[in-house]
Amino acid sequence: MGESSDSVSVDVERFSFGGKEHHVLTRHGPLSVCVYGDLEKPALVTYPDVALDYMACFQGLFFCPEGVSLLLHNFCIYHVNPPGHELGAVAISSCDPLLSGDQLADQIADVLDFFGLYSVMCLGVTAGAYVLTLFSSKYKERVCGLILVSPLCKTPSWKEWLSNKVMSNILYFYGMCGLIKEWLIQRYFSKEICGSWQAPESEIVLDGRQSSNIWRFLQSMNDRCDLTDALKKLQCRTLIFVGEHSPFHSDALYMAAKMDGKYIALVEVQACGSLVTEEQPLAMLITMEYFLAGYGLHRPSQLNCSPRSPLSPSHISPELLSPESMGVKLKPIKTRISLEV
């Protein structure tokens, strides 16, 4: 374990689907971090979207056979949950101040310090992508690559801001009611999936959460700062996925356009919403395999350097990171069986 004056762990003998959960006390409050895999392997840090824990956001990607062979074989995974988003979390005290985007990013640095990590790969979805992008802009030397799914980078549009405000008020007064669940499902998935999912499936994703903690994270994202200027200076290699039906499709295109073309690749996934990790994970893995090959990671893993050392992207081909070559739309891939009514 790494030493840090700001971070301590509460030892818990708790295992979740093969991962061990750690409670890490950061300078801005505790976080739940679930660790999967060999601690000697390179680190991949994940961060989910609003109202999701790591299982609800990433299980489709990490637990399909292709995902296991590519990701769990090459990385030790550090799944960071937003404050109070893990299942079984208690409500954060109303006396605790709301965290800013900067403070959420600082929590990631504290997590890395606790586990003794220096340079990591990051994978985030929507709000989680915003937090990890901000983290990479503040701690440039600690991020060797970004994989972002339907990311945010600007301040909310008036439409998004107003929608978030309305839903925040409903969430505050009525908790995780049906209207909030429906709004969140539409945030995550395409119309095709939303039309085939019934109430029990949405409850599997969203029940068991502390509504007050979700409210806090949503408030933080509604007050987020614009990262446009920081993007222009960001030089870590970045792979962006966005579903063509994502409410944040234009945000992802804007972000890709503002980043240095030498470091950015954009993939639009057809017939998909924001949560590509769950709706069409196989559409991600094909491109991710090429992206990670530039870091010396293969299926199976063939690392020529010490696995604990930072990943060294010394031989990424220019073609891989060219928007002209990578900015293509993938054909729809059916990854779920439709539920019969």
Rank of each mutant, 00 (worst) to 15 (best):
E244F: 05
A230T: 12
H245N: 11
D251Q: 13
L231R: 01
V242D: 07
L231V: 10
S246V: 07
R224D: 05
H249W: 13
V242L: 10
F248G: 00
Q235E: 14
L239K: 02
L227I: 07
H249R: 15
R237G: 00
V242H: 07
F217M: 10
T238P: 12
L234Y: 07
A252C: 08
R237S: 04
F241C: 07
I214A: 06
K233Y: 06
L231D: 07
D223P: 00
N222Q: 12
W215F: 15
H245Q: 14
T228S: 15
D226G: 07
R216G: 05
D229P: 04
C236M: 08
A230E: 15
T238W: 08
D229L: 14
L231H: 02
S250P: 00
D226S: 08
W215K: 14
E244M: 10
K233S: 15
F241G: 03
S246H: 09
P247D: 04
G243L: 08
H249M: 12
D229H: 13
C225W: 02
S220E: 03
H245E: 13
L253Q: 12
I240D: 06
F248A: 07
D251C: 12
R237M: 05
D229S: 14
D223I: 00
L218W: 00
A230F: 13
Q219W: 03
L239N: 03
T238N: 09
M221Q: 09
I214Q: 03
Y254H: 13
C236Y: 00
D223L: 13
L253D: 11
H245A: 14
D251I: 00
W215H: 15
M221E: 00
L231W: 03
D251S: 15
Q219K: 10
F241A: 04
L239C: 10
F217H: 09
L253T: 08
N222K: 07
I214K: 02
Q219A: 09
L231S: 04
Y254G: 08
D226V: 12
H249Q: 11
C225P: 00
S220K: 01
M221G: 03
K232R: 14
L218K: 03
R224N: 03
A252K: 04
M221H: 10
W215Y: 15
P247S: 09
K233A: 11
I214S: 05
R237Q: 08
Q219F: 02
H249D: 01
K233F: 05
Q219D: 06
Q235H: 13
T238C: 14
R224M: 04
C225S: 13
P247H: 10
R224I: 11
S220P: 00
D226E: 04
P247G: 12
N222V: 08
D223G: 10
K232H: 12
V242P: 01
L239I: 05
C225V: 04
R224Y: 06
R216V: 13
E244V: 12
C225G: 06
T238K: 08
R216I: 13
L227K: 01
Q219Y: 05
F217Q: 02
I214W: 02
H249Y: 15
I240E: 07
Y254L: 13
L234Q: 11
